[in-house]
Simulated scan of single mutants.
Amino acid sequence: MEKTIVIYDSDSMYAIRFMEYVKRRGLDFDVLVFTEEESFAEYIGLHPIEILLLGEMLSVKEEQLENISHLYILSEQPLEAGEQGNQRIFKYQSAEAILTKILTDYTKKEKVSGYNSEKNDRKVISVVSFPPGRNKLSFSWSLAYLLSERRKVLFIPMELLPIPFLTLTASSDSNLSEFIYYLKDNNSNVIDQMNPLLCCVDRLSYLSGLSHGLDLLSVTKEDIRRWLVDIRNSTDYETVVFYLGCYSEAAVEIISQSDKVLVAMEENGEDAERIKELDRQLQLLHIPTGPDRFQKLLVPDPGWEGRAITMQELKNSESWLCAMPYADHL
């Protein structure tokens, strides 16, 4: 059954414009608007609502709450400094800001409530970036975010010398390093240790942040095998996207176990030569590199050298446009 976002607000112009924005985002939700109590009561009496955005001047009955999974109040006034509660959102801000807050909160609550998906739906995707570069990282973030609008996605950027890229509010200074510590402890429950270390941007969960690049080099193929087995057996994620910015034992094992490998390339001869050498070495290890699993692609240069960018800049970039057709077919 398709999940539903319902906007129930007496301001019909506001509600319709917000609905149009959500529909343009192409999220995996039906979007409906109600402005009258009678029509809303008739609908909710027959249909469950996944997310309800409720105008502050309106209300729902106690028996209707049973049919609402997540309720958010559209406040007429800005929230005061220090005011808590994810249920109240200032109505008169950008539609993007409202939707970002809702989807981030919704994603976190889905994890806690134990969202289920079929095990055979799990997919591991690797974006290979040898050497790493901001244009390749831009493509990877874009791809992961676009996929997260359709399914539950975990994004894991792995590079030895990470540099600031996105100005995200969630802190992840050393979360990946902390997780590696637990990963190498065979007595740990990998998923239970990983989930509290994840950050979110809208519906996309990500695990990043290194204390030292050598932490990545300490990860063995046995560690990766155990991690991926647990991920594929978990009900938390449908797709995991790895950004591989370093060539290591762990990276080769991830490539070996990936359902799809996207080899990101810049328009220069050196990248092409490196990919040829990568292909040769993988074949020596008997890792298939045929077109059914491997796909080479040229990534555009967004021209962001030397500075971190906002998510909105990423969404307006050539990298985003480049990633869209891949997200549609993966």
Rank of each mutant, 00 (worst) to 15 (best):
E118V: 07
K184N: 04
T220E: 02
S208I: 00
R280F: 13
G114W: 01
S140G: 01
N233R: 13
E66Y: 12
F242G: 05
L53I: 06
F130C: 05
L71D: 03
E96Y: 14
A251S: 15
W304P: 10
D121A: 11
P132I: 01
K91E: 06
P132Q: 02
G209D: 08
D185P: 00
F155Y: 14
R150G: 09
D271Y: 15
L52H: 11
E20V: 12
Y92Q: 09
E222K: 11
N120S: 14
I125F: 00
D236H: 02
D259C: 00
S69D: 12
E149I: 09
I287E: 07
D230R: 06
K123A: 01
L244Q: 07
N268R: 03
G213D: 06
N116Y: 14
E305F: 10
F155A: 01
A251K: 05
V299E: 03
I309E: 07
L137W: 04
G26Y: 13
M194D: 03
S317F: 10
T239H: 00
D223Y: 01
T107I: 06
L58K: 14
G133V: 13
L244V: 04
D223K: 02
T107K: 15
I68S: 11
V127L: 05
Y326E: 00
D28F: 12
I163E: 15
D30C: 12
T289L: 04
P48Y: 13
I180Y: 05
R203T: 09
I191G: 08
E76W: 01
R307H: 11
R25Y: 06
L282Y: 10
D279N: 14
T35Q: 01
R134E: 15
F179S: 05
Y21A: 11
P288C: 05
E318L: 15
E277D: 10
S75K: 13
V299Y: 06
Q93A: 04
D223F: 03
E266R: 10
H329I: 14
